[in-house]
Design a protein around this nucleic acid. Sequence first.
DNA 1: GTCTATAGCCCGATAGAC
DNA 2: GTCTATCGGGCTATAGAC
Lengths: 194, 194
Amino acid sequence: MSERGDTATRILDIAQELAQTRGYNAFSYADISEHVGIRTASIHYYFPSKSDLGRALIRRYQRTADQALAQIDRTTEDPREKLRRYSEIFSGMMLHGERMCLGGILAADILTLPTEIRDEVRAFFGLNERWLSGVLDEGREAGLLQFTGSPEVEARLLVASLEGALLVARSYGDVERYRELADKLLADREAPMT
Amino acid sequence: MSERGDTATRILDIAQELAQTRGYNAFSYADISEHVGIRTASIHYYFPSKSDLGRALIRRYQRTADQALAQIDRTTEDPREKLRRYSEIFSGMMLHGERMCLGGILAADILTLPTEIRDEVRAFFGLNERWLSGVLDEGREAGLLQFTGSPEVEARLLVASLEGALLVARSYGDVERYRELADKLLADREAPMT
DNA sequence: GTCTATAGCCCGATAGAC
DNA sequence: GTCTATCGGGCTATAGAC
């Protein structure tokens, strides 16, 4: 039972774990209530409806991702290393309670989500693709990465492939299955040494 | 409202559509009842529990996939064409009512599924990977396809990438987004003309 | 086989006391 | 802010008539 932080944050932390493991339609205010230690009515005080909670969840997740990518940019120059660090964000989710990426699991639930949340899911993918596109472009210019076609499409392909690798690997409960695919995905894009 | 076929088949058809669009936890016997035109109690006559229904669903889906892959083998020699036909099975799902692959969407729900169904989801991925692995191996031997590493791992990567591409593209409701990625995935594996 | 009726539980959400 | 109490509805599932 996490006790740190204010109540709204603890609610979001537990709700995020539940959403990442079970999906949007398979967790309830009662589930959150048990983990946080307050009654369901009190959760409604912070998040009046479940769609309010869902929207807050994906928005906070976007901000966290944004900061993680900025942190990679701040501490690494090599585009190949940036891709490795990016891939490790995904493997970290499986290690942290068999989680999926929140964007990926909400994408599976997309047709059951309130429209505001759908828009945020797409915005999350857009955020990832823009950052990856920049890394890929820079890496190819520097002769460190190689790929066919535009950086934009290659970025979309990488996001989709990593989401898919995480989805399938998690269904086996096997993080090595993810790593094997992610490592190959990255290795195939590294320019040969000269 | 589909009226063809026996009742069990009509139930499975509707349940499959609902599962592929909404996921396992977001459809009910009441939803099926409305579409099939019989009461929920009558559905329990054919499928006593929801896990019985879910298991029947994924097993039938596996058989259908098996037949579709055998049909590709029967009508096509060229491994490149086999991959194209395989990719079109996925795009066909989005065109047929914004569906996901049943295996992919159940993978997202995996931690909420009865264990028998979990095993079938993994078996479905295994089936796809074995077939693709054979096509890739044959294609490389014939000098028509190219890729690094083993056909087995490359097959896993293709399944995961196509599932991911479908997952993300469907969240935009845009089949072109899927095709762009699938076509690139396949083009990158075609051996250059000599 | 299909129906009506209902049990028993979980769900999101609200009213109002403290 | 957090609680108790509760509403109205949905869910899976079963009993028993036809």
